[in-house]
Simulated scan of single mutants.
Amino acid sequence: MIRLLSLLLFFCLPLAATGPAAAQSTASGVGGLGPRLDRAASDPAMRPLKTVIVARDGRVLSERGFHGHSPSESTNIKSASKSIISALVGIAIDKGLLTGPDQKIAPILKADLPAAPDPRINDITIGNLLSMQAGLDRMSGANYGRWVSSRNWVRFALSQPFVDQPGGEMLYSTASTHLLSAILTKVGRRPTLVLAREWLGPVEGFRIDAWERDPQGIYLGGNQMAMSARSLLAFGELYRNGGKTANGRQIVPADWISQSWQQRTNSRFSGDEYGYGWFARQIGGEQVHFAWGYGGQMLYIVPSLDLTVVMTSEESGPSARSGYRDLLHGLLADIIGSVRAA
């Protein structure tokens, strides 16, 4: 029943506008950015694109909604929410609820461990979950369906066989971030959504509209989270600004952002760097840190240019195999070129 109600929320989220969103503001020298985004969105290959927001140093340069979508409407940001889980872990460490990324997870989740677990389960750390290096078989891709069909997602994830050592190869798995949500729920003594709204609540414009839960009521760490493109921008701006709000309040420790953006491993699919819930690669000649969700839900941060860019897309198809994700990277490269030339 919990899952059904949660899924219904996603299908009933209101759309805030019926036409394209005009640019909220335009910085001097980047006046052609909005029309350039419009031209890019008119490419048939970019048909899934719903919204784009470009902000530099806290100022929105251009904001666009396409095909009847608006930057203010809720959308499922999918795995881009893994970066939000990472932020919550960093805050929990700062509050003393967790000791750090080297903390072992088995004592926290002991009630859900298998009866006769592989001894290596005692070696998995918070950091291993964040960097997708737990060693357990992946519960994403082909395995995702049977995982979310199980009666207890936490126990099912912990009962999977080891296919590598903890700290080994990157094994991208939403189960890893869901275990982090379960851990946050235990140490925070409140649901993860409540913690997120409390801890990230001071960030102006940030709001989680809906979020799926597992059969035990634990919010799905790293997937099925709904928020607007503007809300995702607010979260990105928090990270671009070193974890501080616009008025200078420290929300996420600056050191945690540095740790999260440090390369821990590489994706075996794309070769991209991966840290604690964040991808990284060179785009347009700049180092870019980004959150990426299924279908093309993108949050890009370009520290060297004080640039934050959000792109949301239809969630109906994969963005990697289709080449659509690379088109979004290309659009970001064009944006970077325009901003750099301004």
Rank of each mutant, 00 (worst) to 15 (best):
6 S>G: 14
21 A>L: 01
24 Q>E: 14
33 L>S: 05
33 L>P: 01
35 P>V: 01
43 D>H: 13
46 M>P: 09
48 P>S: 11
50 K>H: 15
55 A>F: 06
63 E>P: 03
65 G>V: 06
65 G>A: 07
67 H>Q: 12
77 I>L: 02
84 I>G: 02
87 A>V: 01
89 V>N: 00
93 I>N: 05
94 D>A: 14
102 D>R: 15
106 A>W: 04
107 P>H: 11
109 L>V: 08
114 P>G: 04
115 A>G: 10
116 A>R: 12
120 R>P: 05
123 D>E: 14
127 G>E: 11
128 N>I: 11
129 L>F: 01
142 A>Y: 09
146 R>N: 12
146 R>V: 10
155 R>W: 11
169 E>L: 04
174 T>Y: 07
176 S>A: 09
177 T>Q: 04
179 L>N: 09
179 L>Y: 03
179 L>V: 06
189 R>W: 10
201 G>H: 02
203 V>D: 03
204 E>I: 12
205 G>D: 04
207 R>H: 15
208 I>K: 01
216 Q>W: 03
222 G>A: 06
226 A>S: 13
228 S>L: 07
235 F>L: 04
235 F>Q: 03
238 L>T: 01
240 R>W: 11
242 G>V: 01
246 A>W: 04
246 A>E: 11
247 N>M: 10
249 R>L: 14
249 R>M: 11
249 R>F: 08
250 Q>T: 12
256 W>D: 00
265 T>V: 09
274 Y>L: 05
279 F>A: 11
281 R>M: 15
286 E>Y: 03
290 F>Q: 13
292 W>I: 08
292 W>G: 06
296 G>T: 01
301 I>N: 02
313 S>D: 05
316 S>F: 15
319 S>A: 09
321 R>C: 07
333 A>K: 07
